[in-house]
Design a protein around this nucleic acid. Structure first.
Length: 420
DNA sequence: TCTGGGGTCCTAGGACCC
DNA sequence: TCTGGGGTCCTAGGACCC
């Protein structure tokens, strides 16, 4: 039997998550804001129909949203991540071969057994019944075509959210009409380049000379073209790869001037990134800190970054905080209104593979046992139970989340009660 | 008049994804 | 007042080596 890919894509995922535990939202437009309540990052179908654009700053569409009784939420990643796990677990009941591609998408590897529309519908119905999340399913012989299939299925109401390209006589016609910008792997820059070469849809892109594609869109573009031609050439990512870089950064809830508050923020981000690093059992050898002013404002601008090699790769929070704060003090310039800061850990190696430093001062080595204890406490009693004082306590700079919904599934006080 | 060849490693920048 | 965050891959070009 032939292998095919099924892409399962959650519809308007964040908005759908908000609806699961709040049925009153089902008939209203719903939008979700980015961190700091800045931009629109997700919209329900009704919100899209109102013409609220993706990624637009909320204040620009606020009047429109309010006029139509739109429900607006701050991002609740705790909730979305938990519901995502539930969706993926349902998918694993169909095949162990589930390649989780993002928080709201996964590729399933299936054996083709006749028309796969039925199995596709079964997946969609089971996910909805078990989690409350609506999904679309695209089935094809390559991942890129499966993405295209899901894209078509979402827009054509006759398909009921499922399209199996491998069993459609009109598969080529269906795909050929897709605009190049909507092809997975073609972003705004390549789309503009293709358009100016007279290429607007998938059919035209498929017919392009591969040498031209490679020259103008690198090997990545060539792979996309081959995939659309039905030749599978993308690798699965079955095992979640260890990250090669870990970034923690945030815009502030308000402008920040003083070094003191920047130190708190950078220390807090350093703490978070070190936790992420330990979760993947890694050690970082390079620490980079960056700070910047608000580029949208007409005020004096400053942005810069500095890096520092650690004497020995480490995942120890105090070591990373100390290094990050030293960098920050060198970066800091007085008199600017800062808007954002961040830290990046790179040069990541596996714990155990690290090159040791014979001349490493003992006080810079840190203690893995203390870190284990801290992580254990925070896992058991909740993030932030134990934290470093250098991160501050009040944190007046922290991000705005004024419209946050409850953590319905991960915090005891927030679990919905049913009264009979 | 004439200025090697072949290789590695690193970084910055550009493209993409969600 | 108010404009997100966190990643990956690829290429070109420079530094450096023999």
């Amino acid at each position: 039997m032939k292998r095919v890919f099924a892409l399962v894509d959650c519809n308007n995922f964040y908005a759908s998550c908000e609806r699961v535990f709040n049925p009153s939202l089902r008939s209203r437009p719903v939008v979700i804001l980015s961190n700091n309540d800045g931009c629109i990052v997700a919209r329900s179908a009704e919100a899209k129909a109102l013409g609220i654009p993706f990624a637009s700053p909320y204040y620009k569409v606020r009047a429109l949203a309010e006029r139509h009784n739109t429900a607006v939420f701050s991002s609740n990643y705790t909730l979305y991540a938990d519901l995502s796990l539930r969706v993926m677990n349902v998918l694993r009941s169909f095949t162990p071969d589930v390649d989780v591609y993002s928080i709201d998408e996964a590729f399933l590897s299936l054996y083709k057994n006749g028309d796969m529309t039925g199995p596709g519908l079964a997946i969609k119905e089971k996910v909805y019944r078990w989690t409350g999340i609506p999904v679309s399913v695209g089935i094809a012989c390559t991942r890129t075509l499966a993405k295209a299939a899901a894209h078509i299925a979402k827009r054509d109401s006759l398909m009921k959210g499922v399209l199996d390209l491998t069993s459609r006589a009109d598969a080529d016609e269906l795909v050929s009409g897709i605009q190049v910008r909507d092809i997975w792997g073609i972003g705004p820059a390549y789309a503009a380049k293709l358009n100016s070469a007279g290429v607007y849809n998938a059919a035209q892109f498929i017919k392009l000379d591969p040498a031209w594609v490679k020259r103008n869109m690198t090997i990545t573009g060539l792979r996309t073209q081959s995939e659309l031609r039905g030749i599978s050439c993308l690798e699965p990512a079955m095992v979640p790869a260890e990250k090669k870089a870990i970034v923690s950064s945030r815009s502030f809830g308000r402008q920040v001037r003083g070094l003191r508050e920047l130190e708190q923020a950078v220390s807090t981000y350093a703490e978070r990134s070190a936790e992420k690093l330990r979760r993947q059992k890694g050690l970082a050898s390079l620490v980079t800190v960056f700070i910047m002013t608000n580029r949208f404002k007409d005020t004096p601008q400053y942005a810069d970054s500095l890096s520092c090699e650690l004497p020995e790769a480490s995942c120890c929070t105090p070591v990373i905080i100390r290094c990050a704060l030293a960098l920050l003090r060198r970066l800091y310039r007085e008199g600017y209104d800062y808007n954002k800061a961040g830290i990046m850990l790179s040069g990541i190696v596996r714990a155990g593979d690290a090159q040791l430093n014979l001349f490493m001062p003992e006080e810079l080595r840190g203690s893995s046992r203390v870190m284990e204890a801290v992580d254990h406490v925070n896992r058991k009693f909740g993030t932030g139970t134990l934290f470093y004082a250098s991160g501050g306590i009040d944190r007046p700079w922290s991000m705005r989340r004024e419209m946050l919904s409850p953590a319905y599934t991960t915090r005891w006080e927030d679990i919905p009660l049913i009264r009979i």
